[in-house]
Write a protein that binds this DNA or RNA. Sequence first.
DNA 1: GTCTATAGTGGGATAGAC
DNA 2: GTCTATCCCACTATAGAC
Lengths: 207, 207
Amino acid sequence: MTAPSARTPARERLLDAATDLFHSRGIAATGVDAVLRRAEVAPATLYAHFSGKDGLVAAYLERRFARWREAWDEALAACGDDVLARAVSVFDALATFPSNPGGGDPSAGDDARRGCAFLAAAVEIPGPEHPAHPWLLADSALLRDRLRQLASEAGAHDPDALAGELLALYDGALAARVRAGLLTGDARPVPFPARDLALAAVARHTA
Amino acid sequence: MTAPSARTPARERLLDAATDLFHSRGIAATGVDAVLRRAEVAPATLYAHFSGKDGLVAAYLERRFARWREAWDEALAACGDDVLARAVSVFDALATFPSNPGGGDPSAGDDARRGCAFLAAAVEIPGPEHPAHPWLLADSALLRDRLRQLASEAGAHDPDALAGELLALYDGALAARVRAGLLTGDARPVPFPARDLALAAVARHTA
DNA sequence: GTCTATAGTGGGATAGAC
DNA sequence: GTCTATCCCACTATAGAC
C-alpha cells in the first residue's frame, strides 16, 4: 500500500494504537509488537520516540490525562456561572469522553466497558518507580482537588464530604459500566443516573 | 492416616501465595515462579493441582468469592430481622474482609489499597474464555441480585434504583481506597462513610 | 502417595544492531 | 525497515525424599 503523503506521524499512530490496545486488553497483556502492528510502525521507530514499553505506557496515560482534563475544562466552560451545574460537570465530561469523531454515545462502546483507565493502570502498575505513576497520581489529585473546589463554590456546608460523595458517584458510574459488560446477556442493565444523583447530593449539602 | 505433620498442604499454600501476589502486584505481572517461591512449593506440585497459571488464577478467585460471600452471609445473620441493617450489610462485610486472624482493621492494610479483586481481575482478563471468568461474573451477579433483594425487603419504592445506588457506594468506597493509596503523602485522606451514606439512601427510598 | 529438587525446552517478549 | 540477539516466562521431565 502506498502511503499517503500527509500521513499521521508515527508517534501519534503509536499512541493511538497504545490507547486502543492497552485500554481494551490490559497493559501487561499487550505486547509491543501488537502495538507496532496496529500502528504500522517499525520497532526502531518506537524506541526512537520512547524509552521503551514503559515510556510508551507513560506517554499514553499522559495524553489521556491531558485530554480528560480538557474535556472537563470544556464541560466546565459550558456551565457558565451556574455553580450547581459546575459541581456536577464531571459527569458531563464523562458523557463526552473519549471524544469519538465518528459520532455515537461514547458510553456505549466497548471502550467504556473498561472503566477508569487510570484505576485500571494502577492495578497493573504497583510501584511508584514506573514512569507512568505520576499520571495515575495526577488523575486522582485532579478529581480530589477540583471536586472539592467546585463543592465549595456551590456552597456546600462540608465541601470535603460532598466531594467524597461526588467522587464515589464518579467511580461508581465507571465501575457500573464494567459490571454491565460482565453481565451482558442478562436482563437490561439498569442505566445508572450518576448526574441526577450528583445533583441531589449537591442539593442536600447546600440545603 | 494423616501424618502428624502440622504443615499446611501445598495446595493451600499455593492459593495463599497466589492471593497475596496476584492481588497486590497484579495477575499478569506476577510470574509463576514468584508464587512457587512464596508458597515454598515445587513446580511439579503446582501443575499436579492446577491446570496451569490460568487454573491457579481461577481457583484463587473461586476461593475469594466463596469467602466473600460467607463474610456477607455472616454480616447478614448478625442483622437479624432489621431490614434497614440488612440493606447496608454489605458494608459491614466489607469492614471485616478479608478476615485477618492477626487482628487489626482490614481496611487499613495494603491489601485494601488494591480495591475490588474481581474488578481488578476483570481488567486483566478480557475474554470470557478464561477459566476465571465465571467468578468475575459471580461477584457482579451476587452484588446485583442480593442488593436488589435487600432493597426490596427494606421497602424501597424502586428497588432497582436503590440497589444501583448501594452498588455505586460499594464500588465508590473500594475505589476510594485505591485513590487514597495513590495519594499517600498528601494530607489525611478523608475517610469515606459509605455505610452512613447507604443508610441515608435507604431512608430516602423508603420515605 | 505426596511432595521436592533440578534441569531443561519452546515460545514470545523486549530490545537493539545492521 | 529488516533482521537478529537476549531474556524471561510457562511448562515439563526425571529422579529422589519423607
